[in-house]
Design a protein around this nucleic acid. Structure first.
Lengths: 136, 136
DNA sequence: ATCCTACAATGGACTCAGTCCAAGTCAAGA
DNA sequence: TCTTGACTTGGACTGAGTCCATTGTAGGAT
């Protein structure tokens, strides 16, 4: 994740302790935290960080393309730092766990022209649902 | 949609004017209204219908499997009465218009075993995004 | 036709996720 | 080390949805 900090600095981001902590919290694979979870974890390292800053920073990371916003359940949005390798999501209907997955094929190609209603289709977002080993 | 009312009556639904109006509002193809939009339209026919009733009724229709809940944008959920023919959604990134679409192939099959993390995968929900003819 | 009652509707308070803003703070270039 | 504009803060606010005590009523029983 330090390469993330590097990239951000190169783009002229002012590096504050808040932003550093948020970037650290988002480090790892299969990380899909809500803004609130990010806030809780960030607070453990930097007690006075505010909710507004967490929302601001996550929003910036999303517009910079460094983090992806995922809504798997219609409730709080989740933030996925694995933005540089295209992937889809597998969600457990029992406990809500989310995993990054890589289906075969090109999903957009599976939508025939006569089903496109004249749209220019650029992207397909897939949410697989099922039960994880411990919820089965 | 009268067949919907029929099915509901058979399942022992008490038929009230509120429920009838909500079912009528949801009639049609490519209908993807938010709860609030349903409420506004229902109010035109039955001025004193309450928000709570709209939410209750939509929730019941969803648990009965007569309506599908769709969250295309992480904001308000949308309600799709086309529940008896499996389909996916194509959303315009410009204006938010939603169309029901039918991709070829079986999306669940495109997720290889080694990408399933031991989950029992039962379903795949696809959101295609792009620009509609008038937003292009 | 009327009565009964369990199921349904109501509206207002409440929660949860997220946004907005005016005021204070501070990173980093001069 | 000074300066300044970008960043942070907390609290008020919004939008979507839930909860609940009270009131109303569909539809079976009489």
């Amino acid at each position: 994740m330090s390469d993330l900090l590097e990239r951000l600095r190169e783009r002229g981001w002012r590096m504050t302790s808040q932003r550093r902590v948020i970037a650290e919290v988002l480090d790892g694979d299969h990380v899909h935290l809500t803004a609130d979870e990010v806030h809780v974890r960030a607070t453990r390292r930097l007690p006075e960080i505010s909710r507004a800053t967490v929302y601001n920073t996550l929003g910036e990371l999303v517009s910079l393309g460094e983090v992806i916003e995922v809504s798997t359940d219609g409730r709080a949005k989740r933030y996925d730092p694995n933005a540089h390798r295209p992937h889809q999501h597998l969600v457990c209907s029992g406990c809500g766990t989310v995993r990054d997955v890589h289906p075969t094929g090109n999903p957009v190609a599976d939508l025939p022209a006569e089903e496109r209603f004249g749209f220019t289709v650029s992207e397909a977002e897939i949410t697989y649902r099922g039960l994880c080993p411990s919820c089965t």
